[in-house]
Nucleic acid binder design. Structure first.
Lengths: 237, 237
DNA sequence: GCATATTTGTCCGTATGTATA
DNA sequence: GTATACATACGGACAAATATG
């Protein structure tokens, strides 16, 4: 016997095989009995190793079903330049957006303040669903100053892309000025939209995009499914 | 028997007694055998409950000595992570850090990968609680390569500051290379530790700090109370 | 819908190693 | 050195959830 416990070696071996792709995300691991037989140990020793892997979120056990490799959350960079389509394609995912609602209305107080608008100024509102490989990962609501981007809704209707819509309205580039991140539990309606169980954890981001001159052009709120996305800061995800 | 496992009742009972002050911080719990006798269960059932309490740092077991309550307040309110301290003081809050646990052990697979260490390499572990105006806002666990920073634990014990501990170990500057943020619901024990209702939303951040040469020097995981903290990016954050 | 096998979760009992007092 | 107490590992049994026919 070495200095380190038996179960750590089993944990490391399984961790390697998962990292190597021998067990892909969503795959079912062999049963605890099979693993115990393979490693020549008691089932409880295997369970100790699996418990450690579950603690770090590598695997997930379902009673009566088996032990499964967790899907790695979609990495979503939220640095200075936030681009949904670019983010997901870079991660090897297939991005998709679904329009839930488009309208023009008077800005609320928080929206007016974020966009530096006068009270009663009108904003375009873009509500939609973001999907990664067909699975919904976020619900978003973006508001834009209507006076400055009169054709915004038409462009959004056509492309569903904020970046493209801005270009069609004469804005070639924009950057994220600030982002605020909080966590909350999913409301029933939010849960149904994101296909989550009630009470699931939600990542809520609130951000303001500005043009080159620093003027706010978009005030966006996004509710991410907490277990399907990982917001990343820095160079790699 | 109720629908919930026996050990959860024992965990909850012990957690209450610790919260009520029946067992004060630093106190030694009765031995596992005594607890087993008291609750009329097997010793392993008590151990399952203790393991859950130890996972979030409520208690700490010392082989040969006993199980101790860890929630000991630190007498040194100064010295903390730079961003944590700067952010809270800038917000008009009083920041505080409490050391929950310090140890040296072999790195897990994820820790070894994040720190670019060989299998079996040792890491120093720093677990603690971050408070704002006396209220806990986050639980954190940082690991450092032990070979490079042999005196890390001693320095942390003295200053509670990662920055100062690094300086004491010859590292004058370090930067955050990447951070990932996910959301999850609080486990019962984590909720108790952060004084949150069960099932509350948790912001989980995982980050790596590197030196000027880009070598990883710290791998940190933090669990924020989702409704008490708002991570902000941009400006000078 | 229902019965049955499978698989994980829980609990008990025992033995031995190892760090601490 | 001795006693104590936690850590590890094994073995068995049953319950609960799931999958399968």
């Amino acid at each position: 016997m070495g200095r380190s416990p038996l179960w750590t070696a089993i944990r490391d071996r399984l961790s390697e095989e998962i990292a190597d792709g021998h067990y892909a995300p969503g795959d079912k691991l062999p049963t605890e009995a099979k693993l115990a037989e393979r490693f020549g140990v008691n089932r409880h020793t295997v369970r100790r190793a699996l418990a450690d892997l579950a603690e770090t979120g590598t695997i997930h056990a379902r009673r009566g079903a088996g032990v499964f490799v967790r899907h790695r959350p979609t990495p979503y960079p939220i640095g200075r330049r936030v681009r949904f389509h670019q983010n997901l394609t870079a991660a090897g995912r297939v991005p998709e957006k679904r329009i839930l609602h488009l309208e023009t209305r008077a800005a609320g107080p928080d929206e007016a303040e974020a966009l530096s608008l006068d009270d009663g100024a009108e904003v375009h509102v873009y509500e939609g669903l973001s999907l990664s490989d067909g699975a919904p990962i976020a619900l978003f609501r973006s508001v834009f100053p209507a006076a400055r981007f009169p054709q915004m809704l038409r462009a959004l209707q056509a492309t569903q892309s904020v970046t493209q819509a801005f270009k069609a309205n004469g804005l070639d580039d924009y950057t994220r000025a600030r982002t605020t991140i909080t966590a909350k539990t999913a409301s029933p309606t939010l849960a149904t939209h994101l296909h989550l169980p009630g009470g699931a954890a939600i990542l809520r981001t609130v951000g303001v995009n500005v043009d080159a001159a620093g003027r706010p052009v978009e005030y966006g709120r996004t509710w991410f499914a907490g277990d399907r996305v990982a917001l990343t800061l820095g160079e790699d995800g």
